[in-house]
């Protein structure tokens, strides 16, 4: 098991005493598996993902078990947390522009983890990143390494971030709305790429999204969260067909849909 979260409760102090953010969340991700975590704003899906890296709100109190590749993240000491964050898991976010320092060159940002955390020599790190850029479908790597974030499109930046995340060979990838800000065509491209990389490396992916349809189409299994609790857990293929929880059903019904295609284009192609 790459990621195992069991009965996770999380609360933060508030003016009225304390506010429950997570109420008994349990989920797991295995090798080579893509697991969707779906919910609307405030459902606690991002907090759950962040808890896997012990990126918790300040003064939060936590109970339950979180383990990554068998390492206890919830109770472990700093060394364990550092090992998980730097080697075993990586996280990518919705806004690549918010992650990359705007005044530093791509090459410097992308090799940061390798150089500063893993002690890889600068030249070697650049060589490795350049190779990864090729794998994520970015060409002209020399020019790219010297570019600044504002010179690249959102889709290209997200590829850069993915390459940087993969540079340390993580076993688990946490993707928090990683493609939500992209155009649908770019989103499909990035996801096709992510799927290939994941299969090659036998990585586990926790795919956090607000888009139930995307999760159903892309993931193997899907968890649905509401108000800090998991309300549904199913195979992705059946979640629209037979949702067991009324909330999932409401969510599925609310999703705007496209009409059935007449596949004339495909016939002619």
């Amino acid at each position: 098991m790459l990621l195992a979260i069991e009965d996770l409760h999380l609360s933060v102090p508030s003016p009225e005493g304390s506010r429950q953010i997570l109420r008994g969340v349990s989920l797991d991700v295995s090798e080579g598996e893509t697991v969707g975590l779906v919910g609307e704003s405030g459902s606690g899906k991002s907090t759950t993902a962040r808890a896997a890296l012990r990126l918790l709100p300040e003064r939060a109190s936590l109970s339950g078990a979180v383990s990554v590749c068998g390492h206890d993240v919830a109770a472990g000491d700093q060394a364990v947390v550092r090992k998980v964050r730097s080697e075993l898991a990586a996280m990518i976010f919705q806004e690549p522009r918010a992650v990359l320092n705007p005044v530093r060159r791509i090459g410097s940002s992308a090799t940061e983890r390798l150089v500063h955390v893993h002690g890889v020599a600068k030249d070697e790190a650049r060589r490795r990143i350049a190779a990864l850029f090729g794998e994520v479908g970015l060409d002209d790597t020399d020019r790219l390494l010297r570019a600044y974030p504002h010179q690249l499109s959102g889709g290209m930046l997200q590829r850069v971030v993915i390459a940087a995340a993969l540079s340390t060979g993580p076993r688990l990838l946490l993707a928090d709305e990683a493609t939500s800000a992209l155009d649908v065509t770019t989103q499909a491209e990035v996801l096709a790429l992510l799927r290939r990389l994941q299969r090659e490396r036998e990585m586990g992916v926790l795919f956090i999204t607000h888009d139930l349809q995307l999760a159903a189409a892309y993931c193997d299994r899907v968890y649905v969260m509401k108000d800090g609790a998991v309300v549904e857990h199913q195979k992705a293929g059946t979640i629209f067909v037979s949702p067991s929880d009324p909330y999932t059903k409401a969510l599925a019904d609310a999703v705007p849909r496209l009409p059935q295609r007449d596949d004339t284009m495909e016939a002619s192609a």
């Binding site: 704003s41 405030g42 907090t47 962040r50 709100p57 709305e177």
Partner: peptide, 15 residues
């Protein structure tokens, strides 16, 4: 907005 606002709020608190 689908990002939980908890992180943002606590990040700015110590400042």
């Amino acid at each position: 907005m689908t990002i939980d606002d908890i992180g943002a709020r606590t990040a700015s608190a110590p400042v």
